[in-house]
Amino acid sequence: MPIYNLKVNGQSHAVEADQDTPLLWVLRDHLNMVGTKFGCGIGQCGACTIHLDGSATRSCLLQVSMVDDMEITTIEGLSEDGGHPVQQAWKEVDVPQCGYCQAGQIMTAASFLSQNNTPDTSEIRDAMSGNICRCAAYNRIEKAVAVAATKMK
């Protein structure tokens, strides 16, 4: 089996995996980073969102062979101890219900706000619509993104 050199959260990891293994499962099963979640496996729910060279990407659709040597950031590496403004906003607003979708929501929001830190409501709603929250904590997610935007200005 081929060996890939992955750069995850600033650290290098040599991973032996089939070339078609999605990054999601490499993170979760091979590297023991379980913060990135599995929801659908087909790019529809956003639970598996990570940053690839800074932009939000669905790790369930990314084959490990495609990300060799690229910068991968997961929820575990978004900040030290949850200090990222988006994580802070999530705390302030007390967003989670079951919480399962929230890592993906946070990663999507962080990438979106890094490109647009003065979003209006409809921009926030559009940007976050790729992420499903089955508990429907949508009002709070929306609010937390707005709060995070003010922190990132």
Partner: peptide, 12 residues
């Protein structure tokens, strides 16, 4: 606030 907030937002 939710007692598991910190763990949830840091992906524990």
């Amino acid at each position: 606030p939710n007692v598991d907030l910190d763990k949830i937002i840091t992906g524990k």
